[in-house]
Design a protein around this nucleic acid. Sequence first.
RNA 1: GGCGGCAUAGCCAAGUGGCUAAGGCAGCGGUCUGCAAAACCGUUAUUCACCGGUUCGAAUCCGGUUGCCGCCUCCA
Length: 493
Amino acid sequence: MALRFYNTITNKKEDFVPLEKGKVGIYVCGITAYDMCHIGHARSAVVFDVIFKYFKYRGFDVTYVKNFTDVDDKIIAKANAEGTDIIEISERYIKEHNKDMDKFGIARPTITPKATENIQGMIRLVSDLIEKGLAYVVDGDVYYSVKKFQGYGKLSGRNIDEMMAGARIEVDEKKKNPLDFILWKSAKEGEPWWVSPWGRGRPGWHIECSVMSQRFLGETFDIHGGGRDLIFPHHENEIAQSEGATGKTFARYWIHNGFIRVNQEKMSKSLGNIFNMREAMERYHPEVLRMFMLHSHYRSPVDFSEESLADARLGMERFYDTLRNIERYLAMDVDFSAVSPRNLTSGDEEMYNKIRSLPERFIEAMDDDFNTARALGYIFDAVRVINGYYTDKTFKATKESLFVLNEGKTIMREVGNVLGLFMEEPDEYFEQDRRREAEKLGLDIDEIESLIKERWEARVARDWRKADEIRDLLISKKIILKDMHDRTSWSVA
RNA sequence: GGCGGCAUAGCCAAGUGGCUAAGGCAGCGGUCUGCAAAACCGUUAUUCACCGGUUCGAAUCCGGUUGCCGCCUCCA
């Protein structure tokens, strides 16, 4: 079956046929580097990170380009406010971006170009558009003449006349048409500039993506992505610029991710309901945040709330609990290296085959518009099957059964690699989780552990009353105990 | 004002023409356990906002109603 996904420009799911067999080129609009990343940036990053990794998993040779906008009004404003230049500001936030993204388990894209490294290319493209009659110069500014481009509006599903009837179009004396957008801005006092045929100035926002995508992926390339809000005007304008200049199709497939909402509203600076990535990662393990995002389809909006994060945390706990149990068995030091699927007998063989079916189910889900929610459902199925296997009374740790359990771990890691989940050692995961949760509740870990030790001694002495008293005390502090044959583990409810 | 999206159990969430409407959380009954917790087994939507229509057949397609949201301004 073919990999298919929703293409914004046609409004339907389509089979993916790459330009060149076995290869895929993806361009995604990255951040404007003037502030810390918030979880909305994280969602977009996760969506395309998973798409990037999935293409690789399916054997594609992927070139993934994600840019940094490092010259822009907001960066200039911040630089002026701090009495520094745009380079310092953008460098600072690119560094912070990389720190956050690394911690979030986002793989670095193949190429991460910056706008300021591509100014000459932008000047060439703008000149080209002027020559073709698609752009005009007014007092050192260059505008794109929207009416001159036939396909304007084809991505966002609008037409120029309808938009003209709209009530919220700014009036700019210099523009021939209110919808015309700026390609090159003349420099004002205190602004950075580059020399151009139209005088000193700097590029408009949209032009950089046309230039950098073409430079690294070609005039026509496979996939262009970004957040939903970029469809109009940003991506619409990129099409106008690129196709206007080359006369060729720009991106063949468009992928747009949905937003993170807070209380049913879009998370945005103007509403003041932003959660930044760093703070979110202090409160939740990055994989919990990924789980929360991946549990809904990438095009749907998702509501960021304590409840949904708590849900995602419980889900991760379930996954890691299974992985931890598998690890315990594998630590039994039984050599199963000589075992092959062929010398398994009935029960083990059946289980092995069930476990082995996970990757194909995972592919079936992911091939259908990157359906991570369905894929997660399949992983939960696999976890239930594995848990049932080793908790069955007849289960014995033999080299065959450990071989099967090891396969379960391998398979979970295999699909987890694509989703960016289960990257942690289970014990380390739970350790981190306890620390994080204890901190949220202001609990003292040493105190908890000494109480648990005391209770363990009471249990060894079969002093159930004392043991239960201690447990009740801990429960009142939201500490849940789990007695195992050799020790008691704990977690925060 | 223009354009577009969404509405599935107590909650989150897949499913977009046809086997019993995935999965997670919570709940209930059981197994296990000193008792718990976790795990496992069973159970929890005759029904997919509402009203009509198309079809042998619709949560899925069409029309209408209601509600929520997004884009049209920087925005992932």
